[in-house]
């Protein structure tokens, strides 16, 4: 009995370094009318994460969620030897569109978890978050449905504004501006204080007034907002 046990443990030891992964990633914007700012795609160790539900957002997550700036998260991830891809869509990812990229963790077999984040526009601090899913070791095609989170760092006033942390409102690059309104009086004033599943945007039917600069018939969403297909080679 002892012998067969030791053989088994040797076998399981042999299979341990299979953390190294060569994967293709396809990210599809499933929403009817929302855009995503540049994505951060990160393979990282299982003891770190970009965010956690119920916890306050980091300053770097706030910068991503309020303005689409991933530079802080990139620096954080590099500091823990994550394997990164930035901006695979080459700018905004439009509704219905997809972006593809690849990751190889042969040089960093401890990076067994996959996270992907990007801000939703128009929103104050909404973002899509694939949070530390285990990268499958078995070759094949795996689909993940990704939900929208609220970073909890900015009140969801839903009015045109800026993207720098602390600036109220949402930034509106041209394709977002094209479908947004103006003159809204504001929906919610207070930041929630913790990361949570986004309650969705409210919007209104008035392009030049009302409570919101978001169009209720165009910019609302229901989860999931993104589909991620991981192909393990």
């Amino acid at each position: 009995m002892k012998k067969s046990l030791s053989i088994l443990s040797l076998l399981s030891l042999c299979s341990l370094p299979a953390g190294a992964a060569d994967i293709d990633i396809e990210i599809t914007n499933l929403t009817h009318g929302s855009f995503f700012t540049p994505f951060l795609v990160a393979a990282h160790a299982d003891n770190v994460s970009l965010f956690a539900s119920g916890e306050p957002a980091s300053a770097s997550l706030q910068a991503m969620a309020e303005g689409g700036d991933i530079s802080g998260l990139v620096a954080d991830a590099e500091a823990v030897n994550a394997t990164l891809v930035t901006d695979p869509a080459g700018g905004l990812l439009a509704p219905g569109q997809a972006a593809s990229t690849s990751l190889n963790t042969d040089d960093a077999p401890d990076n067994t978890r996959l996270s992907i984040v990007a801000m939703i526009l128009p929103s104050n601090d909404g973002f899509m978050g694939l949070n530390s899913v285990e990268i499958p070791s078995e070759p094949g095609r795996y689909m993940f449905s990704v939900n929208a989170y609220d970073a909890g760092t900015e009140g969801n006033d839903e009015i045109l504004g800026g993207g720098a942390p602390g600036d109220p409102g949402f930034p509106a690059p041209p394709p977002v501006m094209a479908t947004s309104g103006t003159g809204g009086t504001g929906v919610a004033a207070d930041a929630e204080g913790f990361v949570h599943i986004h309650r969705g945007v409210l919007g209104d039917a008035d392009p030049s007034g009302g409570v919101s600069d978001i169009d209720a018939t165009v910019h609302r969403w229901l989860n999931p907002v993104v589909r991620v297909v991981v192909t393990v080679n």
């Binding site: 929403t31 009817h32 009318g33 509704p95 219905g96 969705g200 165009v218 609302r220 969403w221 229901l222």
Partner: peptide
């Protein structure tokens, strides 16, 4: 519609 393509529905 805004774009002639299938997406998920926004409710």
């Amino acid at each position: 519609d805004a774009a002639d393509q299938v997406t998920m529905h926004s409710g």
